[in-house]
Design a protein around this nucleic acid. Sequence first.
DNA 1: GTAACCCCTGACATCAATGTCAGGGTCAAG
DNA 2: CTTGACCCTGACATTGATGTCAGGGGTTAC
Lengths: 152, 152
Amino acid sequence: MKIGDVAKRTGASVRSIRHYEKVGLIRATREENGYRDFDEADVLLVRRIGRMIRLGFTTEEIATFLNCIVDDPATVTACPKVAAAHRLKLAAIERQMADLETRRQKLLITLKAASGQDDTSVPEAPVHAEASPIARAHPRHPGARGLFRRSS
Amino acid sequence: MKIGDVAKRTGASVRSIRHYEKVGLIRATREENGYRDFDEADVLLVRRIGRMIRLGFTTEEIATFLNCIVDDPATVTACPKVAAAHRLKLAAIERQMADLETRRQKLLITLKAASGQDDTSVPEAPVHAEASPIARAHPRHPGARGLFRRSS
DNA sequence: GTAACCCCTGACATCAATGTCAGGGTCAAG
DNA sequence: CTTGACCCTGACATTGATGTCAGGGGTTAC
């Protein structure tokens, strides 16, 4: 099976499949003409990789536990590495959510103050607390990046 | 006042302050020797910019409404542009939170299944739903990026 | 004069998956 | 043989605030 077929059957782009191979997530035999040759197992594997990426794992993270689930889907959760990686990711996500919630609250405060504006209603503006000079910003969040850019 | 002083008093790095000037968020007069010269108002401005950035606004977004609040802190929320930008950002944040929550739930499901592993307990693995090939991934989130990298 | 700071500009690096282009093969159908 | 639809590799672009370095100059105290 050629790479274009795998792309159609998995939803991943040809570019992405080549990328997964380059970083070692999948392997492909080669035909005489140099074309990559995939089989059914590769289709399943690419789909699994896609799911992991949508969950927020990077290819590097996936590589650390993909060998645990390469053979049998039923053992996906039985491999310690998988569960460990999932717990780490879960914790990271919850940190990000907490950070977003903090920012959300501050935005809400400002907006609430804004609705009662008119003029000199707010003496010292609700421009939020003076954050410590050191503890700025939030960590970059992982997760898929290459598509549907520009949200806000 | 020189740029180093502003940095100390705002918590922003010298590099960042120069960046804010480059993108038009602040202006600085120049001394005869070419050094930037700042005043007290600039200190307040840089602090405000820092707060906005920590809230998740990009410099480009800040530029769209910074002129509303450049003079009087008390009118911060009185400018329509500010409130509009805040509402947009709020919506973006809530989208991101919803996305994170979705991923969190899927991770939890997998982990729950993992805790009841042992062996052939799960016939068809809880590897989450087969996402449509098109609607993959979540938009890149804005917000501060240059510090405290690598979280997960 | 020289060390020790400070300032300047410009450029490259970071993160990570993906898009996209250039330049070039392979192959089957017409 | 030509066209069209694939495939290949390699490279650059994207995001965006910030770090960091190179190369050069100013200022001040010794």
